[in-house]
Amino acid sequence: MLLPDKESITVAYAIDTGEVESFGKIGTTKTEIDRLCKRLKSKSARVRVVYEAGPCGYSLYRHLIDRGFDCMVCAPSLIPKKPGERVKTDRRDAVKLVRSLRAGDLSAVYVPGVEDEAFRDLARAWASTRDDLRQARQRLKSFLLAHDVRYTGRADWSEAHRRWLSSYSFANTWQQLAFEEHRRTIDDRLAQCLRLETALREAVVNWRFYPVVLALQAMRGVQFVTAIGMVSELGDLSRFTHPRQLMAWLGVTPSEHSSGNRRRQGSITKTGNSYARKLLVEAAWSYRHGARVARQIQVRHEGLPKAIIDRAWDAQLRLCQRYRKLVARGKNANIAVVAVARELAGFIWDIARLAMDLALPHDVQSA
């Protein structure tokens, strides 16, 4: 019924089985929204509200829920669309939402709690800063390569590499200034990363999904960065009643176009959360090698229940074998890893469920 944007909200409504009518546009202030709520309640005792998920977040959803409305945030990419439809306006979209809601054709978006969303914002800020740091380092490397300045060792930002960078200087004053600015950008991003990581490690202990973050780190390829990113994006995994639902939400299930007796499957759908899918696939690459419990994993196992450690070991045995079988059948390594990532999502779902059921103590420290 609502189509919110930055400056206005387009409204359409229908009473019972009557015709869909356009209400027009209103402002985005709470006063104008409350006035709309009163007018809608005067038309019917029970009001259902729906609007598209967008850049304005979930404040409107929470405001309507507080006012006693039955509200749903729907996924814009899953709204039915006619193939020949070429005219798009806010009014048409609002009317279409009402008709789709009546027909039951809309898919709801998971709305996190206020605390969960705040923690996710902090985790996303950390992820964005890490990306900025990576790009800043790449810019400096490109700058040095353009001027044929080469480091003889391994340019992996180790202590020796950073010491060489700090001692190098250009003969030209302008080039030296540009070089120093590139270095300062890296130092600033690195300090920002450390601040955010420290804040996350302090905050996660008081988060309700802290047991899940700890339990996921028992798995191979899932360290603190991956566990924090996955859980903050996924939220409450209990909303997935079956691991296949989580696989579909992550977009790692194969697409399909079947008709009659012919079944055709294509590449993965890549729907849902792209950042969580990226972390999942990165974790899946670690299962290319044989199953073993490295020293780093042993440290992360300390204080965890045996049931979670055993399930993580089952995942290693299963996924490492799965990768070898797929490669032996001639599958490309990238395709094999995505298949492993799909099954890894199932183990993540199971271990997260175990962690919440066992209620891990908060005195267990994350590695």
Rank of each mutant, 00 (worst) to 15 (best):
Q223Y: 07
Q223H: 12
V225K: 10
T226M: 15
T226S: 15
A227S: 15
A227H: 05
A227Y: 08
A227Q: 08
A227K: 05
A227N: 06
A227C: 09
I228W: 07
G229V: 14
G229K: 13
M230R: 03
M230P: 04
V231I: 15
S232E: 07
S232R: 06
E233Q: 15
E233L: 13
E233C: 14
E233I: 13
L234R: 13
L234Y: 12
L234Q: 14
G235K: 11
D236Y: 13
S238E: 15
R239N: 06
T241R: 15
T241P: 02
H242I: 04
P243Q: 03
P243M: 04
P243A: 03
R244K: 11
Q245F: 05
Q245I: 07
L246E: 08
L246W: 06
L246F: 04
M247I: 09
M247T: 14
M247P: 05
M247Q: 15
A248Q: 12
A248K: 14
A248H: 11
A248D: 10
W249E: 06
W249R: 03
W249Y: 14
W249N: 01
L250S: 01
L250T: 00
G251Y: 00
V252D: 03
T253Y: 00
T253C: 09
T253H: 02
T253N: 07
P254H: 09
P254L: 07
P254G: 10
P254R: 09
P254E: 10
S255G: 13
S255W: 00
S255T: 08
S255A: 01
E256I: 13
H257E: 05
S258I: 03
S258G: 01
S258D: 02
S258C: 00
S258R: 03
S259A: 15
S259G: 11
S259I: 10
S259M: 12
S259R: 11
N261C: 01
N261P: 00
R262A: 11
R263P: 00
R263C: 03
R263N: 03
R264K: 12
R264P: 00
R264T: 11
R264N: 08
R264M: 11
Q265E: 13
Q265P: 01
G266F: 14
G266H: 11
S267H: 02
S267A: 04
I268K: 02
T269S: 10
K270Y: 02
K270C: 04
K270E: 05
K270N: 05
K270M: 04
K270S: 02
K270R: 14
T271R: 09
G272C: 06
G272L: 03
N273Y: 07
S274W: 02
S274E: 10
S274N: 04
S274H: 05
Y275W: 10
A276I: 08
R277G: 07
R277L: 06
R277S: 08
K278G: 01
K278N: 01
K278V: 00
L279Q: 09
V281D: 02
V281H: 04
E282D: 15
A283L: 02
A283V: 03
A283Q: 01
A283W: 03
A283N: 03
A284D: 08
A284N: 09
A284Y: 07
W285F: 15
W285S: 11
S286K: 01
S286A: 08
S286N: 07
S286L: 10
S286V: 03
Y287A: 05
R288N: 11
R288W: 06
H289Q: 15
